[in-house]
Computed example of a mutant assay.
Amino acid sequence: MTSSTTDQSAKLVTLEEFVIEAQSRFPHATGEMTQLLMDITLGAKIIAREINRSVLKDINSAETITEPHSFKMARLEQFAKEQMFYALNRSNEVCMMVTDDLAEPERLNGGTGKYFVVLDPLDGTPNIAFNGAVATTFSIYQRRSDPSEPIDPAEALRAGSDQIVGGYVLYGSSIMLVFTAAGLGVTFFTMDPAIGEFCLSVPNVKVPRFKPMFSINTSFYELWPAAEQAFLDYLVSDKNMAGKAYSLRYGGSIVSDVHRILMEGGLFTYPANSLHPRGKLHLMYKCNPLAFIMEQAGGLATDGRQRLLDIKPVKVHHQSPVYMGSPDNMQEYSDFIESKNQAE
């Protein structure tokens, strides 16, 4: 390795520096967009601190030991929503926020501004009980109507392909920001607690083409359609592409499961079932940012029939089946289901 290569690899690049440098390649990387990303990451830093503090409170307080875990989760989810609300209100550029626990979109700054943000402030909160990963997901959209006028909440119902930025913050053994924009690729940033900054850790992430691994909640097996049951049976047989049973990795949080697949390859699925015939996972604030990232990393994301990012939601809490991952794993799923349908 040459000294110049060593110097380059040792250079610390912060999120703000990365976005400023990327402005020539990313037409939406204006000063307002840079500030908006900074605001979102500020909210994430405060959420991360509260997650850590909540664990310490549990250790040191006799009251919280006996408190139902659902109460702790509700408190953290409410705290996360409030912090994101405050963070997005810092500038005058965000006109509306859409989250998982609001029945309707919520206007910010009187409904004026260039952008609106769709997010899940805290996904996977049951994992906190055993120090598992939780996450914040977000999508940024540029509004089509006059930014000086109050936005119509119906404008939130946009296909995921309209996102200009999609991302998530993963709170685990380290705090990691993953985000993408069209043409910019997928980039990992890791929080350096010593300086309080997200620093570039993995540029230009590409999902491996194939890995004999899948992520699925098998507890719904008896409720799935017959073809989905048959596909799981196929994955754990010796008839699949690998000629041996695939590894199952399921962590109870779509973000952590998809993050693993981004790094290692594989397939994430959450089929429809008899309890959720239209699917269970929420399209706008869970699936769309992850689908955008997966596609920009070279993977695929569908509802089993069509591209997830092409679906126009009919309501804020639109739910969908989800299949995403490595291109060869996704092709294997499509081929298997097609052969089953033809056989019928």
Rank of each mutant, 00 (worst) to 15 (best):
2 T>D: 11
4 S>M: 10
11 K>Y: 08
13 V>L: 10
17 E>S: 13
21 E>G: 13
22 A>D: 12
22 A>C: 02
22 A>M: 11
27 P>H: 09
29 A>W: 02
30 T>K: 10
33 M>L: 15
33 M>V: 10
42 L>F: 02
48 A>F: 05
49 R>H: 01
51 I>W: 07
54 S>G: 07
56 L>V: 09
61 S>T: 11
63 E>V: 15
68 P>C: 12
71 F>A: 10
73 M>A: 08
76 L>E: 01
77 E>S: 03
83 Q>N: 09
84 M>G: 02
89 N>C: 10
92 N>G: 11
102 L>K: 10
106 E>F: 07
114 K>G: 14
115 Y>S: 07
133 A>W: 02
134 V>A: 04
135 A>N: 03
136 T>A: 08
139 S>Y: 01
144 R>E: 14
144 R>F: 09
151 I>P: 13
161 S>P: 05
163 Q>K: 03
168 Y>K: 02
172 G>W: 05
174 S>D: 13
175 I>H: 08
178 V>R: 03
181 A>E: 09
191 M>G: 01
194 A>I: 12
200 L>E: 13
210 F>A: 11
213 M>K: 12
213 M>S: 13
222 E>R: 13
228 E>H: 05
234 Y>V: 07
236 V>S: 08
241 M>W: 00
246 Y>W: 14
247 S>K: 06
254 I>T: 07
255 V>Y: 06
256 S>K: 10
259 H>S: 15
260 R>K: 07
264 E>A: 13
271 P>W: 00
271 P>V: 03
277 P>C: 07
283 L>V: 11
293 I>F: 04
294 M>K: 01
295 E>I: 09
297 A>F: 05
301 A>F: 00
305 R>E: 14
310 D>H: 01
322 V>R: 09
328 D>I: 12
341 N>F: 06
342 Q>T: 08
